[in-house]
Amino acid sequence: MKLIFLDIDGVLVTSNSLIPSDKYFGHTFDPNCVRKLIEILTATKAKIVISSSWREGRTLTQLQSIFRANGLEDCVIGVTPSFNDETIRGIEIQTYLDAFDDLEGFVIIDDEEEMGELEPFLVETDFRTGITESVKDDVINRLMMNKQ
């Protein structure tokens, strides 16, 4: 299975989707980023593991519901462990990978660089734009060529 370790803020929630009057503030994804993520998932058949801070204080079921409400059906299969504020996200992702059996490839989509030894697998986004066409192309290329 191919995995995408996904941050949310700066990837799917961008400055364009933060509308103060929106009753779903904090839960509305940028529709352009959603379209590009759907294209990635369709092309690669990858599944999503949430590595975002959104996993803290929310269950997997709640996160899946948020994704469904934003047009992303049946794509989230898990969340990385959360150790503490001092632990870099790359260590949490590596812990998830260590327990995963059927890995064909993976990529990390995040707007932060702190991935430690997993930095070569990072496709970095910008908070203002999230998943752009070039990010989408990079992720698809990595997942289609990447064999772990």
Rank of each mutant, 00 (worst) to 15 (best):
L37V: 12
V79Q: 14
D102P: 03
F5Q: 13
V123A: 07
D85K: 14
L6N: 02
N70F: 05
L18Y: 07
T14S: 01
I140L: 04
V34G: 09
G78F: 11
V49C: 02
A69F: 11
S17W: 01
S21M: 13
L72P: 07
D98M: 14
I50N: 08
V107Y: 01
T14I: 01
I93V: 14
I93N: 00
N141H: 14
R89S: 03
E119Y: 09
I66H: 07
L143E: 01
E56C: 15
L143I: 04
R35C: 11
D22G: 10
C75V: 15
Q94F: 12
V76A: 09
K36F: 02
E86I: 15
T132S: 14
E119W: 04
V76L: 07
I8C: 08
F67A: 09
I50C: 11
L103R: 06
Q94W: 12
K147D: 12
D137R: 08
I131N: 06
I8N: 08
T95S: 15
I40G: 02
E119R: 10
N141E: 14
E133F: 06
N70L: 07
I40C: 02
D101F: 07
R35Y: 04
K47W: 08
A43R: 12
G130S: 07
T125L: 12
F121E: 04
I66R: 10
D22V: 12
S21T: 15
Q94E: 15
E133C: 00
V49A: 09
S15A: 10
D101Y: 07
I38T: 13
V76H: 06
P120N: 13
D126M: 08
I8V: 15
L18E: 07
Q62T: 06
T87M: 10
K36I: 04
T132Y: 04
I77V: 15
L41V: 06
V123R: 02
N70Q: 03
G10S: 09
D138E: 15
K45E: 05
I93M: 00
E56L: 15
C75G: 04
I66M: 11
G71C: 05
L118A: 08
F121K: 14
F67H: 07
D138G: 02
K2P: 01
N146C: 14
L118P: 13
L122M: 04
G130T: 06
K47E: 10
V34Q: 12
L12I: 09
F67D: 10
E104D: 15
R55T: 05
D85N: 09
T44P: 04
N32M: 13
R89H: 02
